[in-house]
Nucleic acid binder design. Structure first.
Length: 708
DNA sequence: AACTCTTTAGTCGCG
DNA sequence: CTAAAGAGTT
């Protein structure tokens, strides 16, 4: 019954779920966003407003798509398999496979992940004899992706200076190479799918009439191209339902355009978004802090989170002398919490930059506390897995030059750079693949002959086998297992290779297309799954970006220093500070019950000691919500003069005779470093850190210090 | 082809 | 500092 389905929703949630036609839902952190999305889908289907086939739901991550499907199948007695619910990339892949002819692609096109793409760019630059000092492969790759994400082909790029013109040429050459080889990168998946719909009216109208309801999650993260794609799929009678939070837009740097929210309202003729502001996650102290911080941003649609959960505890603030001490503080606090019965996995330690995890990891490790670091290399991105997949790709299609180059001499079989050059020249001259060149030269080169025999044997043997066995045979015949057995650190890799067979089995039983091509696409699109040890009870370490969408009982936000958070690089970008502030907002709203915020006066960064003033974001949290865990209040951040924005060290003045970071000598304690100031006039004090005795406060008027 | 040395860069990162 | 990539050596 629908009453059953809609029960327990608050009025705003109910309005969102049952919105007639298109709507924009401004869903604050912890406001039940996923619940609204899934309930709307279930409600639409249950009340027969749409058939499961008339529905399209898009998310950004596989995790979000999976969660939606899981919740949906709990609400509805339907098979979720055929539903068009998935990531932008996953759905585009589906579209392109179904219409590969119209899209101008081979039906078995391969998907290049970021690393594959970079390798392809490097190969191209080499072939074209491009000076890679002037045109760095990474820059070329970024140029290509940025343009594709903006919906621009090389012939549409406006390049006025010689440098951009050359980049644009390289962009065109790169696309030509991809077309020759039948491969598609992530950005291409979207652009090609967009063009397919834009150019083919019949196809477009088919999908426009079919999809009666399109739902989009995390709408603030959509790029221009993604929004254009959505609009192409939506016909005049399609309801577009977008859910997002402009205050949580933290991915502008990778093409997300919050402006899409305003554009969407205008395009759909919507007067107001539906606002979900009741928060079901945190105590009001945490929300008040988050609301106060985010109110510092000018460009926002505007909303305040509230809760009836109660005030909760004050936010604990800690000032550490350096990053090691900060880590020590975090560890001690976690120990106490655990002693009081909190599970380790209920605690998250957040930081702005990955480099900060080292000190915290070290402290946790030394203290013997279990922890897990998010991010880092994912299963399908591991070298041994990519090698094995390359063998499988060659088994399916030996003309795959990318796969060929990856494993032609791995494990080594005496095919060096020289041999490859010959092959490459022959292939380029004859206009055929490296594999064909290799077959032609197999009589002349013993190593090549062995490789050709190996791949042909693999092809013959796997031709009629089901996927899991193809994977098994591929791993065995590749010689990778033998190679890693002789390596010191090879054990872990062998485990991963065995896990690959399991992954293939799991995929074969879950997917409705258990082909090798489908599995390879799956590997590129869902590189992160199959990670072991995810459920263990461990402290969670991650960047603030990685924490988006998650929640924890207790959260530590560390490294709250000017230059680090907000990050100095962001301060030089237009809108950078506002994005950093949204990042802080995301960090704050991850906490359900308890929040610690900390900063260090100095920290080791790039092998150098750096001194950081407390982050301005600390001062943006109302003092009444914060309890300092230090004996003395820490020196406040004061906004720097416009000319010195981004400068980490304040200029000396009458009140501050030494720069922070200056080396000084004290008659009793010897040499030290100036770490901070507090108070004014006669009460002014100076904080000096000494290597042996630690930090000391001195009355500025009395202390005898000399610069050194 | 394997090994060693040097250089270099270093925000965040879905698919 | 430190990891990774490129260059140079054996």
């Amino acid at each position: 019954m629908s009453s059953n389905l809609l029960g327990g929703l608050n009025p705003d949630q109910l309005a969102a779920v049952t919105a007639p036609g298109s709507a924009l839902v401004l869903a604050g952190a912890g406001s039940g966003k996923t619940r609204v999305l899934t309930t709307r889908i279930a409600w639409l289907i249950q009340t027969a407003q749409v058939s499961p086939m008339g529905l399209l739901a898009v998310t950004f991550t596989n995790k979000a798509a999976k969660e939606m499907l899981t919740r949906l199948s709990a609400m509805l007695p339907i098979n979720t398999r055929g539903l068009w619910v998935g990531t932008f990339h996953g759905l585009c892949n589906r579209l392109l496979r179904a219409h590969h002819r119209d899209a101008g692609l081979p039906q078995q096109f391969q998907i290049l992940d970021a690393a594959d793409q970079l390798a392809a760019v490097k190969r191209l630059l080499k072939v074209l004899n491009v000076d890679t000092d002037k045109y760095e492969p990474r820059k070329v790759q970024a140029f290509i992706n940025q343009n594709k994400e903006a919906g621009q082909r090389a012939d549409k790029v406006e390049a006025w200076d010689p440098y951009s013109r050359r980049l644009t040429e390289l962009f065109a050459e790169y696309d030509a190479q991809c077309n020759r080889e039948g491969v598609v990168d992530f950005a291409e998946l979207l652009l090609r799918s967009y063009e397919l719909l834009a150019r083919n009216a019949l196809l477009r109208e088919h999908y426009q009439t079919r999809f009666r309801h399109i739902l989009v999650d995390e709408f603030q993260d959509t790029s221009k191209l993604q929004y254009a794609w959505l609009k192409l799929l939506a016909g005049p009678d399609t309801a577009l339902f977008a859910v997002g939070d402009d205050d949580q837009s933290i991915y502008a740097f990778r093409g997300a355009d919050v402006g899409n929210m305003g554009v969407f309202m205008r395009d759909m003729g919507l007067a107001e978004p539906i606002k979900l502001t009741q928060n079901y996650r945190s105590y009001s102290t945490i929300l008040d802090a988050a609301n106060a911080v985010i109110s510092g941003n000018e460009n926002r649609l505007g909303k305040d989170l509230w809760t009836d959960a109660g005030v909760g505890e004050p936010i604990r603030r800690y000032q550490a002398s350096d990053d090691r001490e900060e880590a020590g503080f975090v560890v001690e606090a976690i120990r106490d919490l655990h002693r009081d019965g909190l599970d380790y996995s209920d605690v998250a330690v957040l930081y702005r930059a990955n480099a900060q995890s080292r000190a915290i990891e070290h402290a946790l490790f030394t203290a013997g506390l279990p922890y897990r670091v998010y991010g880092g290399q994912r299963f399908f991105e591991r070298a041994e897995i990519k090698h094995a997949l390359a063998y499988l790709r060659l088994a399916a299609n030996p003309e795959d030059d990318n796969a060929f180059l990856r494993v032609v001499n791995f494990p080594t079989r005496g095919i060096g750079a020289r041999t490859l050059e010959t092959l490459d020249a022959a292939a380029r001259q004859g206009g055929f693949s490296l594999w064909q060149a290799a077959c032609a030269d197999a009589g002349k080169h013993k190593g090549l002959a062995g490789f050709v025999r190996l791949i042909e044997g693999l092809r013959a043997e796997t031709a009629n086998l089901p996927l899991p066995e193809v994977a098994e045979v591929g791993v065995e015949r590749s010689g990778l297992l033998g190679h890693y057995r002789t390596e010191k650190e090879g054990e872990r890799r062998i485990e991963n290779l065995n896990e690959l067979t399991n992954a293939a089995s799991a995929f074969a039983s879950e997917s409705d297309d258990p082909s090798l091509t489908a599995f390879l696409a799956h590997a590129a699109l869902e590189a992160g799954d199959y990670e072991a040890g995810a459920s263990a009870s461990a402290v969670q370490l991650m960047t603030v970006h990685a924490a988006k969408g998650l929640e924890f009982h207790t959260v530590f936000i560390t490294g709250l220093e000017e230059g680090l958070f907000p990050h100095e690089n962001a301060l030089n970008e237009a809108g950078g500070l506002e994005e950093e502030r949204r990042l802080m907002y995301v960090a704050l709203t991850r906490a359900r019950r308890r929040l610690f915020i900390s900063h260090a006066e100095q920290r080791m960064l790039h092998g150098q000691l750096r001194y950081g003033l407390p982050s301005r974001f600390l001062e943006e949290i109302p003092a009444a919500l914060v309890q300092s865990l230090n004996r003395r209040p820490s020196p406040a951040y004061t906004a720097p003069a416009a000319a010195s924005v981004g400068v980490r060290v304040p200029q000396p003045s009458r009140d501050l005779p030494y720069q922070i970071g200056a080396r000084v000598s004290h008659p009793r304690y010897g040499e030290g470093v100036v770490c901070g100031y507090q108070g004014r006039g006669a009460e002014a004090e100076i904080l000096v850190g000494f290597p042996k005795v630690g930090d000391k406060w001195f009355i500025l008027d009395y202390v005898k210090l000399t610069a050194c």
